[in-house]
């Protein structure tokens, strides 16, 4: 069996060696097609990172009525911290609010002086949420419950921008999946066509192998191997090309390259579309032995 496998691998290399130029051209074509996808992924990844950062900041801030004491505020914070979706709560006293105001907006600090010592910024409770609670529906639901609690004067959770943000993240994820699917399909067709041509060119070899008693897998394996290699080499080539473009643009357009997981995804997509393409190509290409 081991000799049979070795010979099948050897057949694969003979196939490629016999048409090295067209094999390299196919890899280049696959690389260029994948490069379009890779660039789309880089853009998506960077947009996604920005959107995710925005989403991480999604939280709720409750402004308390002036008559709420610090003890009552802390009790309220305790109740809120036990609610579903709440990761942490932080009580901001009027003094701390004033200190933050002065630190963040020093040019408007005079305004507080002007309003006099009787004026106090309201105490508030800042609520951080678990990641899966950062959608507009869940934040809105939580905000509605909290707004009905005693001592709450106002509640802020970015209800204007949150639905758009959530939708943008969803659309981006859907686009990546759709583009991946379309690209995998088109790449499979490219590889399928190449393998079909390879099979047609090797029709006599395939026939003779079958006639002299080669098992079906022995005949097919070199073509599947060729598809696999084309897919992996093509996707690797595309990553290298995209990496080079990304590096050249990094100073004028700061961005991040794809993370390891996405690189693996591109390689797996390349390998699987290569194999699928070979399978399709063989299905229509392998002739029945004639006499």
């Amino acid at each position: 069996m081991i000799h049979l496998i070795k010979n099948a691998v050897r057949e694969g290399f003979l196939n490629i060696k016999g048409k090295l130029a067209s094999f390299l051209i196919t890899i280049l074509m696959v690389s260029l097609s994948f490069m379009v996808f890779d660039i789309f992924l880089v853009v998506s990844w960077n947009m996604g990172t920005v959107l995710k950062k925005e989403q991480e900041n999604v939280g709720i801030e409750i402004f308390l009525l002036e008559n709420v004491t610090e003890v009552e505020a802390v009790n309220l914070a305790d109740i809120i911290s036990g609610m579903d979706g709440v990761r942490s709560v932080y009580y901001v006293s009027p003094d701390e609010a004033e200190a933050v105001f002065r630190a963040d907006l020093p040019e408007q600090a005079d305004l507080l002086t002007l309003l006099g010592p009787q004026f106090h910024l309201p105490a508030s409770i800042q609520i951080a949420l678990h990641p899966n609670y950062r959608t507009s529906e869940k934040v809105g639901g939580l905000a509605r419950i909290i707004s009905g609690m005693d001592g709450v004067e106002d509640i802020v959770y970015g209800k204007e921008y949150l639905p758009g943000l959530t939708r943008a993240v969803d659309i981006l994820e859907e686009l990546v999946i759709l583009a991946g699917f379309v690209l995998a399909l088109s790449l499979s067709l490219i590889v399928a066509n190449t393998v079909r041509l390879a099979v047609a060119k090797k029709a006599l070899t395939v026939q003779i192998m079958s006639i002299v008693g080669a098992p079906g897998w022995f005949v097919k394996m070199p073509f599947l191997g060729e598809g696999l290699l084309t897919g992996i080499a093509g996707s690797t080539g595309s990553l290298l090309l995209t990496g080079a473009v990304s590096w050249m643009l990094s100073s004028s357009l700061p961005h991040e390259f794809l993370p390891g997981k996405w690189i693996m995804l591109v390689l797996i997509l390349g390998a699987s579309s290569g194999v699928a393409g070979s399978w399709l190509g063989m299905k229509s290409g392998i002739p029945k032995p004639r006499s």
Partner: peptide
């Protein structure tokens, strides 16, 4: 050699 190679005969 082909028929022997596809039958898995040792080199």
């Amino acid at each position: 050699a082909l028929p022997l190679q596809v039958a898995g005969t040792s080199p």
